[in-house]
């Protein structure tokens, strides 16, 4: 969290300290129910979602206020994405996609506040998110389509001789999905935040500080972009995977 690059002890940059989970109250071991800094920032993400989506729209105006416009734009954006990628069948699962998008978006953005804990940089969080999507979609596909869901792995458009090989590749790629899905998000967030911290550490050196501060500013802007883009990427991949389970088109 804190950049403890005090001048006296030379460079003591701890870029990974910001990712340490600590109990918020007291200093005991972390049980599954312990209120930690993760809990705090998850709760703040929930609060932000409520502020934007509930309090921002409380006036239900036909001509929207600014806050209502924001909520409506997010709604329209995600709704269109779900509808375009998965088709009409997928719209049923729009609330879940919206939950994922809003959570990741606000967790990413809150993580950009100095001294905050970026919940989406934690592998536990992103793997859970990815596995929820993975198992949810697998179960959904099997329930909705039955054994026909497995036809997804049997590429009928390929020559017959190639199909078994392609099936193996398809199965592997299917099971790799949650891995890439989760590590992409956590990796992006973690790398960016660590780099900011490293540059911030260099700022304690007088000669380098102008460059370091400029670099931190530039990377911060980049991270802002990454925060939004990664939320988008995670969500649209969720939609793409969802299409396998609910869409009619085989590929």
């Amino acid at each position: 969290m804190a950049t403890e690059a005090a001048g006296g002890s030379g460079f003591a940059i701890h870029p990974m300290d910001q990712f340490i989970v600590r109990p918020l109250f007291g200093d005991g071991p972390i049980q599954w129910y312990t209120v930690t800094n993760v809990t705090l920032w998850l709760a703040l993400a929930v609060v932000c979602v409520v502020l934007v989506m509930v309090f921002g729209t409380s006036r239900r105006a036909i001509i929207p206020s600014r806050s209502q416009s924001v909520a409506e734009m997010i709604y329209g954006f995600v709704h269109n994405m779900v509808e375009e990628v998965t088709g009409h069948e997928g719209v049923k699962y729009f609330p879940y996609v919206m939950t994922v998008f809003l959570f990741i978006l606000f967790a990413n953005l809150l993580g950009l506040i100095p001294m905050s804990f970026t919940t989406t940089s934690s592998l536990a969080v992103t793997i859970t998110l990815a596995l929820l999507v993975f198992f949810g979609i697998t179960i959904l596909g099997l329930v909705r389509k039955g054994p026909a869901f497995l036809a997804m792995f049997w590429v009928t458009s390929a020559p017959l001789a190639l199909r078994p090989i392609l099936a193996v590749i398809e199965v592997i790629s299917y099971f790799v999905r949650p891995v890439s899905h989760s590590i992409r998000l956590a990796g992006n967030l973690m790398a960016g935040h660590a780099v900011i911290k490293v540059f911030a550490g260099f700022a304690s050196m007088a000669i380098l500080s102008p460059i370091a501060v400029g670099a931190v500013t530039a990377i911060y802007g980049l991270e802002l972009l990454v925060a939004v883009v990664q939320a988008y990427v995670f969500t649209i991949l969720t939609c793409v995977y969802l299409k396998d389970a609910v869409g009619d088109a085989h590929h």
């Binding site: 129910y33 998850l42 993400a45 994922v100 859970t128």
Partner: peptide, 11 residues
């Protein structure tokens, strides 16, 4: 377990 629990609560 702690993170996953609180994440599920948040979701």
């Amino acid at each position: 377990p702690n993170q996953i629990f609180w994440l599920l609560v948040a979701l």
